[in-house]
Design a protein around this nucleic acid. Structure first.
Lengths: 214, 214
DNA sequence: AATCACCTAGGTATAAATACCTAGTTAGCT
DNA sequence: AGCTAACTAGGTATTTATACCTAGGTGATT
């Protein structure tokens, strides 16, 4: 199937850095089969613009004020099933990418990607395919997904978040109105699930997975 | 003093993201008093190009492969005293900015800065002035510099790094062939200097200050 | 020679984390 | 009704971290 000029791909750009916006705009001005409908600086306005403009593809940054790209992706793909989201991020951890896929993203390209590959990725997701940077694909293969049983429950995430904020088990117990024994049990389960055996690695896990503000 | 077109500001761009490069190039193509001499993708090549091209100003990203922007800035400002370095980063912590200033940077603008302000900042540092994003200036004021006595010694940085990698005091003692009492004493001194009173905050400090790989 | 910062090391005591147990309650699902 | 996951809570023992104390050795500086 050859795509003619008459069926351009409509695109919404979401990134909070003016220079990245500028680079993307400059890039896509070279391709006559891509039409940039708009640009957003954060997740909130991206959401509004997506619903208003109904673009074929959204190129979505992740780290942004107001609402991050993953959360925005989740809402957008739910409300606009025909709009494909391509994540454009500097984060390259396997679980980060998996949470993006979980949120409904059709692809994931890193910020150090060339303009040609970004263009190619947009074409791919517009056609209903997926596209991942080669290093991302490699990371996904090298870091197999966790078993369902090893995912943290909501309560465990709360506990881990508080732990990583520097609260002791007693303080957490007071905060949540439960026994410090319970907090202790949660900590044990969390470490067991994540295969982590010291507090320090727990903190690093929490930071790397966005459970707390750095 | 009015600057005519005949004394253009020569510029070297250093950033590892093609889209940022593109945005900067597109931006500066609008200003006829700025001439971009070249673009580098990392600190190492930036160093070589700086020496080769001797630009008036270098717009320098920080997070890059091969050599980070702060280290590159330190070497460049030492070897090329007439070349001004303007840091262009997404990191906005006071100590990060201070280490950039310490390395010889003439200014610091954040990645969410508009193209107009980046242009203005380049003009400022080219004239020998400094320029800092307003939020950076605010951060610097709100977070006064640490006293000389509160800076970590080399040994303390080593200890902190090992602590933040998850080693216990005993393990660190074994690693460094010293008594765990000594490690303990260092830990106490570190926490005292940094005004930190729990392990978790120590780990967060280490991560936020680049003492360990995330 | 004296001072000072730094690294070193030990004693003693308490608080916190961790390991290894058990077990009740509740909500949801089959 | 029975099963399961998740949250809850306790006992006991050990290890680790932390607080507060002292103090010797060394190298640089004055």
């Amino acid at each position: 199937m050859i795509q003619g000029k008459e069926d351009k791909i409509s695109l919404l750009l979401v990134d909070d850095h003016p220079m990245v916006q500028g680079g993307l705009l400059a890039c896509f001005s070279y391709y006559d089969d891509i039409e940039v409908l708009g640009v957003s600086n954060d997740g909130e306005t991206a959401l509004a613009k997506a619903i208003e403009l109904k673009p074929d593809v959204i190129l979505m940054d992740v780290s942004m004020p107001s609402m991050n790209g993953i959360d925005a992706t989740e809402i957008i793909t739910e409300q606009l099933p025909d709009t494909k989201v391509l994540i454009f991020s500097m984060h390259d951890s396997a679980e980060f990418v998996r949470s993006a896929i979980q949120a409904g993203a059709s692809g994931y390209v890193l910020k150090d990607t060339s303009s040609e590959e970004v263009y190619y990725a947009i074409k791919a997701v517009a056609k209903g395919n997926t596209h991942f940077s080669s290093s991302i694909a490699k990371t996904l293969i090298e870091n197999p997904a966790k078993l369902e049983n090893d995912k943290l429950t909501t309560r465990e995430q709360v506990i881990l978040s508080l732990v990583a904020q520097g609260l002791s088990s007693k303080e957490i117990a007071r905060e949540l109105n439960i026994s410090f024994r319970t907090v202790d049990a949660h900590r044990r389960n969390i470490k067991s699930k994540l295969n982590i055996d010291c507090l320090v690695d727990l903190v690093r896990y929490a930071i790397n997975h966005g459970l707390i503000e750095e």
